[in-house]
Write a protein that binds this DNA or RNA. Sequence first.
DNA 1: CTGAAAGCGCTTACAG
DNA 2: CTGAAAGCGCTTACAG
Lengths: 339, 339
Amino acid sequence: MPVTLVEVAARAGVSPATVSRVLNGNYPVAEATRQRVEQAVRELDYVVNAHARALLHSTSGIVGVVLNDAADPFFAGIARGIQTAAAGTRRLSIICNSEGEPSQEFAFLDLLRGHRADAVVLVGAAPEDEEFRTESAARAKGLQTNGTRLVLCGRPAPSPSAPGDVVAIDNEGGARAITQHLLDLGHREIAYLTGPAGRTTTTARFVGFRTALEQAGVPLDQGLVLGGDFSRRSGQLAVQNLLAAGKRFTAVAAANDLMAAGAVSALREAGLRVPQDVSVVGYDDLPTAVDVWPALTTVHVPLEEIGRLAVELAFGGSGMQTTVTAPTHLVVRDSTAAR
Amino acid sequence: MPVTLVEVAARAGVSPATVSRVLNGNYPVAEATRQRVEQAVRELDYVVNAHARALLHSTSGIVGVVLNDAADPFFAGIARGIQTAAAGTRRLSIICNSEGEPSQEFAFLDLLRGHRADAVVLVGAAPEDEEFRTESAARAKGLQTNGTRLVLCGRPAPSPSAPGDVVAIDNEGGARAITQHLLDLGHREIAYLTGPAGRTTTTARFVGFRTALEQAGVPLDQGLVLGGDFSRRSGQLAVQNLLAAGKRFTAVAAANDLMAAGAVSALREAGLRVPQDVSVVGYDDLPTAVDVWPALTTVHVPLEEIGRLAVELAFGGSGMQTTVTAPTHLVVRDSTAAR
DNA sequence: CTGAAAGCGCTTACAG
DNA sequence: CTGAAAGCGCTTACAG
């Protein structure tokens, strides 16, 4: 059984209230008394019960992080930023893997609400359907009445009136920039590997791609647009299919780095050289982007910074609903060359 | 302000006790009563206060995970296994990044104790000094008296008598196997890149390397043993130094995949081909090992499985102190060739 | 089947 | 500077 404050008080020969006071250091206590209490705490190896404390304060010192998969480097990077920033405010982070399942996401949200999390950060693309949005808005309201701050990272607010701050990512701008890079190199037949269907990030990145083509007056060939799911394997498969179908293309733009790595691997299997025969670009600038050979030209997304911003909005915020947009920028490495 | 159980009771026209009973479903309740309560819960969007509940049960539904860095794929893999298995028991996981700092590790342990975590899983190599071991053993005892189960993952118990289960990794066996692979290919001048000094994992892997050489009657050249710290950069630097010093070697064995990736990159910069000129091997078999070009020959470590095992020991365990050792095995890919 | 009451481990006005 | 008492939001014997 854990040691309680009452036992500490008994050993120190004072009242529980006094022990509480020296522990919290928010009231004057006689030096001699303090000494005795501190010694008792040490001797009994006492640690306050965080639940009893949370019951009084109705605050828990916990930040909930809900994401698809903490082992995915994209999410890991953001989670790390959140974790570090939260620790800086003496708060603990709870990581919850939703596997991209809305039902799991909602379940975690309820759990975190029950734990009276100080804040919840919801990371990653959201499904684009109306039902999800309605449910999300309801959950957001529930968290708010519980006093839990909500921050969305990399997804838009479910409705203009829903509570919660937003750290947006300039997905469209980055996609435009990297597509422009390919166009500048003379590429006209560019295959595009999308993210999973019906997700906000997937759409934003594709729109950026399409917009850049339009602005350059290059027609979009629907036959070169392939559905992926952000996994390495899906990028590899897509390019294999493209090749098997005998499609002509001189560049591949993948909606993230993992698919780009898969694409490179499929090209190499087919005896094609990157970038001499085909240029490849990714998105996210994950740490692994420099380990792929050739090192990936990609769009940098400041993952840790995004996590840090989320925590800042949650606790340092003005109290007003705020949206900040994290900038993205092109990083040119070795996987792209002039046509 | 959050809705309380008393308010739900008032709206449903029953006593708080009755609401508690329908919520927990562990007592008979009249169907009509149940209906009214459930409706009130829905209308008020009520969620039980996990802290109040934890205060009664002295259990929190929380699993603490303490590791160096959740963004590192090695830790991310194990954390994922823990998280999934914990969720399977309806428990939430708290991830704490200690940055490899013993002081931070201890601080998190105390925090988790205060939160009455059901279990704490401590992941990663431990420092080898006596002071750390003593402190660790004391913390282990503290957790035990709190009723928190402790599991060590990838590190040995601080003392034979310290409470806590262990999921060990066969680091030495894997290192022996991969070194043997290089020897079988005819390599005799093998550079070795170590992990950070004074860590259990570093030692175990190096011992495996040394043992394999000894058994083959190949002398160990201390000039070919370079200190790294498990980071990609340190692997790259080590090989650059080796090259600058004009050392002869036909293979590089890195104590993990990240350093192996760095080594490959340094070799390539110097105009050397892998594996034609120099063979390179890693350790861990991270997802990224297949993205490195050439794909890395390495030692597979069942990361997710290790996490799963940890949770199993914590909650399914016999109650007796148990150590299980996760097996490792050689994975031959493209970064090694015959001398 | 249901309610009144005690209690989990702490904190904090309220007295002194 | 310190203690007695009430209360945070729940659960669970104890009665009925």
